[in-house]
Lab assay of single mutants.
Amino acid sequence: DVEEQIRRLEEVLKKNQPVTWNGTTYTDPNEIKKVIEELRKSM
């Protein structure tokens, strides 16, 4: 579920933690925001 994935990513973003997405680890909050944007567009 895309909305659930977005929620999880936003939680990680709030905690300022790195997130691994599709085999890539993002540590930059701006990169994580881009991933969230892409997910929103795909909905």
Rank of each mutant, 00 (worst) to 15 (best):
K34A: 13
W21K: 02
E37D: 13
R8G: 07
E3C: 10
V19N: 02
K14E: 13
V12Q: 15
V2N: 04
P29S: 07
V2S: 04
E37I: 08
V2I: 15
I32S: 01
I6C: 01
Y26N: 00
T25P: 02
L13D: 01
D28H: 05
V2E: 04
E3Y: 14
Q5I: 15
K15Y: 14
N30Y: 12
L13N: 02
K15N: 14
I6Y: 02
V35R: 02
N30H: 12
P29T: 06
P18T: 13
R8Y: 15
S42F: 14
K33R: 14
I32Y: 01
E37A: 13
E38P: 00
K33N: 05
Y26G: 00
N22L: 11
I6N: 01
D28T: 09
V19A: 09
T25I: 12
R40D: 01
M43H: 06
Q17V: 11
K34H: 08
P18A: 11
N16I: 03
Q5N: 06
T20K: 10
I32A: 04
P29Y: 06
E4W: 11
S42R: 10
E37M: 11
M43T: 07
E10Q: 07
E11W: 04
W21T: 03
V12T: 13
T20W: 15
E3M: 14
E37P: 00
Y26K: 00
N16H: 10
K34L: 11
K41D: 06
E11A: 09
I36L: 10
E4M: 11
I32V: 08
K14D: 09
M43D: 03
N16W: 14
E10T: 09
T24H: 14
K33Q: 12
E3I: 13
Q17F: 15
K33E: 09
K41S: 11
L9I: 07
R8K: 13
V2C: 07
S42I: 13
T20H: 14
Y26H: 02
Q17I: 14
I6A: 02
I6S: 01
Y26D: 01
E4L: 09
Y26Q: 01
E37F: 08
P18D: 06
R7Y: 05
L39R: 01
N30F: 12
E31R: 02
M43R: 05
E31W: 03
L13R: 03
Q17H: 09
W21P: 02
T25Y: 14
E38I: 12
W21F: 13
I32Q: 00
N30E: 14
S42W: 13
K15A: 12
D1S: 13
E37L: 10
R8C: 12
